[in-house]
């Protein structure tokens, strides 16, 4: 589904070069639910941005769903984002001036879907996240957990194969965080591949696989840890 080999990403300013990712290797399989952890500044968001085609990289190879994306232009990248990737953000990123219906509509319009198909998809998604009755509310009229559920509805409305979430529960209390996590799990069960960055180890443990990023690389410690979780999960 996602395959990164030897990816490097450097941020250059006049004074300094920051290697946000260095020789980064990762493979994510179709249908997996991966939790990414790591200290602040280690490169988690950079990884997600590159994975979701929000940012380009300096070295290495990246193929998404079998397609090599290093040579794509801005137009093609936007289209791939729209068709294959769904995003969930820590601060929800709902558009404050649009009601829930129109918020979920945003990616669908960029796909030039017909009005009828859009309406059906939007109402179906709002139904799924339990907010169908509030489709004409503004984001500011909702709690954080509800807002994140709308954001999830928006991310999934276009039926992406791949869902990227950057600390989706970072701004939620633990009850709401668990509800969002439940939702993500059920989405994953229906076949969507999920990569989620989180600080919450309890939530991370619920994922299929844990990856730790340290200094812009997948840390070996993480693989050891992961191997252990897998053993525990297998009941050994």
């Amino acid at each position: 589904m996602l395959k990164m080999q030897n990816i490097s990403k450097v941020y250059r300013t006049d004074l300094i070069e920051t290697y946000a990712l260095r020789e980064f290797d990762l493979e994510v399989n179709e249908g997996e639910f991966i939790a990414v952890t790591g200290p602040s500044g280690s490169g988690k968001t950079t990884f997600l941005n590159i994975a979701g085609l929000l940012e380009t990289f300096d070295h290495g190879e990246y193929s998404l769903d079998g397609e090599n994306v290093s040579q794509l232009n801005d137009y093609q990248r936007s289209r791939l984002r729209n068709e294959k990737v769904g995003f969930i953000f820590q601060s929800f990123n709902l558009i404050p001036d649009l009601d829930l219906f129109d918020n979920v509509d945003v990616p669908l319009r960029y796909r030039r879907m017909s009005g009828r198909a859009r309406k059906q998809a939007i109402e179906g998604m709002l139904e799924m996240v339990g907010l169908a009755s509030r489709k004409n509310y503004l984001p500011s009229q909702l709690s954080g957990g509800q807002q994140q559920r709308v954001a999830i509805a928006r991310a999934l409305a276009g039926k992406p194969r791949f869902l990227l979430a950057d600390e989706p529960t970072g701004n939620l209390d633990s009850l709401m965080a668990r509800q969002v996590m439940d939702l993500l799990e059920s989405i994953n069960e229906q076949g969507t591949t999920i990569v989620m960055v989180t600080h919450d180890h309890e939530l991370a443990r619920r994922a299929d696989r844990n990856i730790q990023i340290l200094d812009g690389q997948v840390s070996d410690l993480a693989s050891i840890y992961q191997a252990r979780t897998e053993r525990i999960a297998a009941g050994e």
């Binding site: 929000l54 936007s78 984002r81 068709e83 990123n93 990616p107 960029y110 928006r154």
Partner: peptide, 9 residues
């Protein structure tokens, strides 16, 4: 955010 959701320039 709109760009992330697939808006072209």
């Amino acid at each position: 955010t709109r760009r992330a959701l697939g808006a072209h320039k």
